[in-house]
Amino acid sequence: MNLTTLTERRKRGDLVTTFQSLSNSQSPIHHLFTLSTDQRIWGHRFKLAKGQFITTVRQFFIINRVFHDWNSLPQEIVDSQSTASFKVR
């Protein structure tokens, strides 16, 4: 039936939520994402910094789930003008 799996839908939803929170500073979860300050990074300018957590409680939190997928996106997708164009790309 060509339906997307739950894993793919969750990944897409996490990426959309990350895009919305990084593009809108008024987002209630904007403060959770830390941008990388390393000047030697390749790719887009919104690379996320990997957080250091002492406990495993936050292991499956959105920041950890989306880290690798978000940082591997091409610049033209991250630089989308709206959420709708981000979803299409």
Rank of each mutant, 00 (worst) to 15 (best):
M1H: 12
N2H: 12
N2Q: 12
L3E: 11
L3Y: 12
T5K: 09
T7N: 09
R9S: 08
R9E: 08
R9L: 12
R12V: 09
R12G: 03
G13Y: 03
G13I: 04
G13N: 13
D14K: 01
L15I: 08
V16C: 02
V16Q: 02
V16H: 01
V16L: 13
T18D: 00
T18Y: 01
T18W: 02
F19R: 03
S21W: 04
L22Y: 02
L22D: 02
S23P: 00
N24D: 13
S25G: 09
S25D: 06
Q26Y: 08
S27T: 02
S27H: 14
S27W: 06
S27P: 01
P28V: 10
I29E: 01
I29S: 02
I29L: 04
I29G: 00
I29W: 03
H30G: 03
H30V: 05
H31T: 12
L32K: 13
L32E: 09
F33C: 05
T34R: 07
T34H: 10
T34L: 09
L35H: 08
T37W: 07
T37A: 04
T37K: 14
T37V: 06
T37L: 13
D38T: 10
Q39I: 14
R40L: 14
I41N: 03
W42C: 08
H44R: 11
R45L: 05
F46P: 00
L48P: 02
A49H: 06
A49C: 03
A49V: 03
A49M: 07
K50R: 11
K50A: 15
G51H: 11
Q52I: 15
Q52L: 11
Q52P: 00
Q52S: 07
F53P: 00
I54L: 13
T55M: 04
T56N: 07
T56V: 11
V57L: 13
V57Q: 08
V57R: 11
R58Q: 04
Q59V: 13
Q59A: 05
F60M: 09
F60N: 09
F61A: 10
I62D: 00
N64Y: 09
N64S: 02
N64T: 02
R65P: 01
V66I: 15
V66K: 03
V66F: 04
H68S: 15
H68T: 15
D69Q: 13
D69C: 08
D69E: 12
W70F: 06
W70C: 06
N71A: 11
S72A: 15
S72T: 14
L73A: 06
L73T: 06
L73I: 14
Q75T: 15
E76W: 14
V78T: 02
V78P: 01
V78H: 01
S80Y: 04
Q81E: 09
Q81P: 03
S82I: 11
S82W: 09
S82H: 15
T83R: 03
A84T: 13
A84W: 07
S85V: 14
F86P: 00
F86R: 05
K87D: 05
R89Q: 12
R89V: 06
